[in-house]
Amino acid sequence: MIAVRGLSKEFDGVKALRSVDLEVARGEAFGLIGPNGAGKTTLIRILTGQTPPSSGEVLFDGEEIDPLQPGYRLRIGLVPQEPAFYGRLTARENLALLARLYGIDRQSASGRVEWLLSWAGLEEHADRQARHYSRGMQQRLSLAMGLVHRPDIIYLDEPTSGLDPEARVSLWGLIDLLAGEGRSIFLTTHDMEEADRICDRLAILVEGSVRERGTPQHIKGLLGADRVEMRLPAGSEGELEAVCGRLGLSWRREGEIVTVTGPELPDKLPEIVSTLAGRVSDLHYREVTLEDAFLRFMRGVD
């Protein structure tokens, strides 16, 4: 649905994005993970037409577009990183205003507003000024405001940063609902749990360039995925080599400790243990998290 090719952005000498290539399919939840200052917001700003790229192109449904053109603008929704609503308007007034500005006629607008209020769980507070809301409610309002005009793709810039765990889960619930409706989601985060839970595909952005991309599984797998550590006295290397070779695993030794890694490790573990029966002790299964992967990629360690 959206694709960017060779996208770069430079702010007076600061290279915020370096030749980024990405693709988001229709109905897909795409996650862009990266540390502070990686360029996530900059990319969203380019994709939502707030700032032009220094070079590169943005394709929408296969056609090169100017993100400012109305046809595109009306099909995207945005939940900016900083809260964006009028604090002294109520949730209902905020939503109704946007509905008017999106040119939705009065009647359907009020229906749409009521629907969004109940969808976001804000009906009870719909007539209170938004500045009095909790952070979680504010973020749900912000999300609802990005959806007033039923966009095909919604850009969420760190939607859960600063929320408590409960509010976070409740927001995730709403994002899941969106994904279920077949909207594309473009989400940035530095919360790996969030990326793992919501996204179908991920890209890791570090210092403006994409370090890696793929499904969460794939990304985790790249780290050598899960691994088993065990104490194995010297002298069994021949047998270890043989069984690993057969199962498509790799191993390495550091002193007494042998580490085995490779795909589908849990299924293959019993065979290794039985082959080396009696000689193995202190066996630990270490599951790799996205967090590990992220930290590795951030440091540039492959």
């Binding site: 939502t48 037409g49 707030q50 109305p70 603008r73 009306l74 995207i76 929704g77 945005l78 900016p80 900083e82 809260p83 964006a84 609503f85 009028y86 604090g87 946007l98 500005l101 999106y102 040119g103 405001m145 990005g146 005009h149």
Partner: peptide, 16 residues
């Protein structure tokens, strides 16, 4: 106020 409330961006995406 539009900047302070972060609404400039949102308004910019509408049909107004």
């Amino acid at each position: 106020i539009e900047d302070e409330e972060g609404m400039r961006v949102r308004l910019g995406l509408t049909e107004m």
